[in-house]
Design a protein around this nucleic acid. Structure first.
Lengths: 340, 340
DNA sequence: AATTGGCAGTCCTGTATGTGGAGTGCCAGA
DNA sequence: TCTGGCACTCCACATACAGGACTGCCAATT
């Protein structure tokens, strides 16, 4: 039996608690908000909310704080995206305006987002997705060491070096390079592995082991998913309010350094309204992040590549502002990377 | 008038304080160490050490803790490098054993070092140093976008994309590529800029603006110093003992995220004994890291490239262990990157 | 001259105690 | 359905007190 007003009460509890980080009581609510009812009435509503486990009282006689479930209801039903201020908008433009390559763009983006939200910001590298192979380059680095560079039409460069036996005379390398480019040029990454089949047959049997070695490495490069890498900024923001984490911030810092965890978390998040995904408090318990919330959106770049961008912070965070920031930056990033 | 025994007292004060993180008093010293004198004598020595500002008493009647100056004397005169345990040695071998490329090697290295020391570990990317240009590749990414890839004989790949006007027909690009490679191939990076002079003259005047654009970008790529990038691991270790930082760990976390600061700090450190550089507490005040110490060593890779590796942690850290770890990992890294 | 035990004095730390205040739940009345 | 009133709970804070870990100093000893 959670009435409309009760939900309004929940909203202001979340807002006030997030702002003041102190349990909010009935009296302070009627003082700060024009509900037109008395404190006793608010208390009644609060009792209902507590029954629904949307709020909880830390001790018998203190104000209430939202539960994770309360935050969830707030985010789903009560929170408006707070539009970015003109200053924030401006910051996005000027911050991301000039950048020379993908690394630079993502680095700036993640720093910007962390500044806008005062949280830890995360940006996943776009997966290679539907890119096509533009060029394969073989560069001898030494008598037995070969660098293999794979360039796609979306401008990604994958490199790897391998040790080989047998000498690498330029002429032969040129032949291999030409053959590889003829076979692979223009192919989607997904099809590249198949196209590499049997390529060794085109060469003298003495060379087979070398070719196989090169082809194996190329296979790995094609399969390697850039999307499994992410950039991060603003870890210091976690330490600003260590009280938000019951024990210590150490596990959180560890989890965000262990990127694998975050990538799995990103992967499991389902988009909700406004193209945003949210995962709140205990919903992240499986990742050792039970006291943090993650807000994520997606962005795409020219090659149809898709990746995620988001922020991570204490459950007690400013959702309306942060959700708006994530969405705005994600959109801007899509625009920036999409246009050729 | 700092006698030998006084210095021994300083040593055990540093050791005990680092281990227990509590001010150490005269009584506990005679209990835990076989000085063969009474507590009163130790007190006398401590008074001398305090006169020399090597130790200080937090309050009138508490034990003493080392000053930054005390740590400095400890590091310079009293600390032996504690040899790594067999387990630690083993860890280095197995951890760094297999790695496919430079990124991977450095990432593993920095994680390893942070585990060995329980501090923040830092590894600087090798500067391009005395590398030579092996190959320049031009890849059209779209009607007006060009990717320029620069490959050196040490296996580094620098990439950048630029917007150009004018169409990019393959034949013309091939011509430019050939010309660039003819001019630059085998040149040291330092000489490349000069070699690019006047290259536009070899082409039709209509193309001049395009060529200039490409050449400018290449100049930047040649000048770009990979050494200005570093990898980091173990930030969480800072939060394990927040008491080590008077105020908050926020400024420290911010400083290490702002890599520029660390790179300047690295640059200013002079190697001391054992090829290690140390910078202790207030010596780092100019970098906003007045309560941290930095231990650094250098490593070099095949191309004669040189870069730094080190750890950063609270002034109150285990210097003998950490110095040994930094040195051992630096040596191993040199061995790993040096062999072709 | 170096060392020692003794001793008074300082100051931190932890525990017990008490008080003020914020907030709640409940109830009877509007 | 809402309201004011009221008793009750419990935290936060201050105060006071006792215990303990040191130190510095000094006179006596080696």
């Amino acid at each position: 039996m959670v009435s409309d007003r009760s939900l309004d009460v929940l909203r202001v509890i979340v807002q006030d608690y997030v702002a003041s980080r102190e349990p909010v009581g009935s009296k302070s609510i009627v003082e700060r908000h024009a509900f037109g009812v008395s404190a006793a009435t608010i208390r009644h509503d609060m009792a209902l909310l507590e029954e629904e486990e949307l709020i909880v009282a830390p001790h018998t006689s203190s104000g209430r704080i939202p539960t994770d479930k309360g935050y969830r209801v707030f985010v789903n039903q009560l929170a408006d995206l707070r539009p970015l201020s003109a200053v924030q908008r401006q910051a996005i433009e000027t911050f991301l305006g000039t950048a020379t390559d993908l690394d630079e763009v993502l680095l700036r983006t993640v720093r910007l987002l962390s500044q806008l939200t005062h949280q830890v910001a995360l940006v996943q590298y776009p997966s290679l997705g539907r890119s096509h192979i533009r060029h394969v380059e073989l560069v001898p680095l030494g008598p037995t060491r070969l660098l293999i560079v794979l360039i796609t039409d979306t401008g990604r460069v994958e490199q790897r070096h391998i040790d080989v036996n047998g000498n690498l005379d330029p002429e032969f390398l040129g032949e291999v390079r030409a053959k590889l480019n003829a076979r692979l040029g223009g192919l989607g990454l997904a099809d590249a592995a198949a196209a590499l089949e049997g390529i060794a047959q085109d060469f003298h049997p003495d060379r087979h082991s070398f070719i196989t070695h090169v082809v194996d490495s190329l296979r790995e490069q094609v399969a390697a998913n850039r999307g499994e890498k992410l950039v991060m900024a603003g870890a210091a923001n976690l330490a600003v309010t260590p009280e938000d984490f019951s024990g210590s911030i150490v596990p959180v810092l560890e989890a965000i350094e262990e990127q694998v965890t975050l990538l799995r978390l990103f992967a499991e998040m389902e988009p909700e309204q406004h193209g945003l995904s949210t995962s709140i408090g205990s919903e992240n318990a499986a990742f050792g992040l039970g006291e943090t919330s993650v807000l994520a959106s997606g962005y795409s770049s020219s090659g149809g590549e898709f990746a995620r961008i988001g922020v991570l912070g204490p459950t007690r965070m400013d959702y309306p502002n942060n959700m708006a920031a994530v969405r705005a930056v994600a959109r801007y990033l899509t625009r920036l990377l999409g246009e050729e």
